[in-house]
Design a protein around this nucleic acid. Sequence first.
DNA 1: ATGGTAGAACATCTA
Length: 259
Amino acid sequence: MALRIATWNVNSLRVRLDQVLAWLDAQRPDVLALQEIKLSDEQFPVAEIEEHGYHSVYAGQKTYNGVALLARRRPEAVRREVPGLDDPQKRFIAATIEGVRIVNLYVVNGQAVGSEKYAYKLRWLDAVHAYLVKEVEAGRPLVVLGDFNIAPEDRDVYDPQAWRERILCSTPEREALARLLATGLEDTYRRLDTESGGYTWWDYRAAGFRRDHGMRIDLILASRALADRCTRCTVDREPRRAERPSDHAPLIAEFSTAD
DNA sequence: ATGGTAGAACATCTA
């Protein structure tokens, strides 16, 4: 048996719903974490997703942000706020699904190094770090996944020289990500693949996808014992080739289960 | 050369 857990920044669930439903039908993951759903809770397509065999829990917001967890089994102990952070932006949802604590993050982009949004990004990551320290201490299997808006290393960037110390690649951002990992989490993609870029995002502009000008900024992290059971972590580029694609591709990890 | 595209409040903001 195996547990398959995926993440996808869909850049508007309204626009991408048919693509998401088709992908669920094709891949049948146990869990799909969505970011940038860009719709309010009242607008969330609960019924359509249910018709495809998935429960939904969500933290929606009009126009910007918004995150959700879709799961074949009912999510429990749902949390929609980063503890200790007074934040009107909906970027966090956590739930327990099939005994695994799942934390879905849409990390702040930050716009430009040194900007107000950049300071907010680092504050936001600090609050998430404090929360993850407690979640790791609890000792349950833990998965932290989503759009991290940080390329962990230069090998995760198509042109590291051009991006040096720019947003998504700056040293303070990478250090903040390293602190999240240091709570006791492993990057499942890197654990299994030390060579290829594994890009998950390509800019809509300047033919980014056609030229493979990408970055690996969507991640699936797992607590150590769970990471030991990770057998696969792959980017599915197929939806990025579709008509009206999201600028992100889905990432899917598979974990073998003991029984 | 600081551009380009996409999605949302459809005028600017965010990414």
